[in-house]
Design a binder for these strands. Structure first.
Lengths: 207, 207
DNA sequence: TGGTGTGAAATACTTCACAGCA
DNA sequence: TGCTGTGAAGTATTTCACACCA
């Protein structure tokens, strides 16, 4: 039960399981065994049982796991049963794509504050939200209860934006700018970088 | 030297090192020690030395690593010294963001084929490239030398697109649709899913 | 019978600590 | 002296194999 004992890798796999289970549920299956789930995600069944066992016993011997309660439990473990509000900085191509990303506005994530530094855009409404001046980031974030900031600005501006988000009291950042952000201990950064993903691919594609 | 012996985790870190080294180079530093690099990426210096040692000895004892050759070597290891052409399927919000992503058109990645299934868009030019009908994916990809396909279409269409890319002879896929793609053994899939990244964050943000 | 839950074994990865070289 | 390169020790994760139960 103690978080410290749960392998990082296990936590990383939970969203993957969740995606599969949701599909299984849509197909009308009520239960699923570890081997069936294992097939769907190309892994060994033991790994799945081990992973799930860290959080309790939801399986029935001889049958498998009930899909619906399992989904609910994983969502709970990942804190996806709570509502999360987000601050988005940068409404260029990436920012706009995020705002219209369907998996977002339904679900537990919602954009609450939007920032940009382009005078043409500041003050306008996008997706029903007013775009604020980037210089107000720390102030407005501080006044809100937002815990997650998304950085979708050009590289050289990312450092400053991260800094402002941190001063606003954010505790997690998703960074689309391909630069390394150095943040205080309490602030987790997730880096999304297509070049990185592509590098992993190219490494494996030539043997 | 044999790839099989190189830890997956090590390969995953190489793009991160590359990002930092490029920044170091821009700042005019000629050499860097493992401890300096370690600081920049918040890791232990031994890990960096170990990582680099899998690919040979580029360091000078008492001095550190020469930045330029190190960058060149890592790019070579990741096969970033070759030119890669890409097929993009889906020119919606995500697709457009990718086309205008600056780290792409310079560098070794280039979009060569673009597909969509919207009759309004098919035949038009985007970023100087004609948009083809999605039904032609497997044919056109087969005729090209493209090895990497990027899927940026709505979820339910992703399966079919993946199928067509595979039949076209692709060997790597980057999938932006939050669904699990089951592909043959020779085809690597990288899943980019903001919900997943956010889940990893939300897990850690509540203790 | 069929599939979970789990210690124990096997494997993978990280960290330590130090020999050896510029 | 300072920093790399690396075996060896330490930790984390995965896989095995089987007791146990619906």
């Amino acid at each position: 039960m103690k978080k410290a004992e749960i392998p990082k890798e296990t936590v990383n796999r939970l969203p993957l399981y969740l995606r599969c289970l949701n599909r299984i549920l849509l197909r009308g299956h009520k239960t699923i065994s570890s081997s069936e789930l294992a097939n769907l995600v190309s892994m060994g069944p033991a790994k799945i049982r081990k992973d799930l066992s860290y959080f309790g016993k939801f399986g029935t011997r001889g049958v498998g796991y009930e899909v619906k309660p399992l989904i609910a439990r994983i969502r709970e473990i990942l804190n996806l049963d709570k509502n999360w509000t987000l601050a988005l900085v940068g409404v260029g191509n990436v920012g706009s794509a995020l705002l219209s990303y369907p998996g977002f506005n339904r679900g537990c994530f919602k954009f609450e504050l939007i920032f940009d530094d382009d005078p043409e855009i500041i003050g306008k409404e996008i997706s029903g939200k007013k775009v604020h001046d980037s210089s107000e980031i720390s102030d407005l974030v501080k006044k809100s209860s937002i815990k997650i900031g998304i950085i979708a600005v050009p590289n050289e501006k990312a450092y400053d934006v991260a800094d402002q988000l941190v001063r606003g009291g954010i505790s997690g950042i998703i960074n689309f700018a391909p630069v390394y952000l150095d943040t205080p201990d309490g602030v987790k950064v997730y880096q999304i970088d297509l070049s990185t993903e592509l590098s992993s691919l190219t490494y494996h594609l030539v043997s």
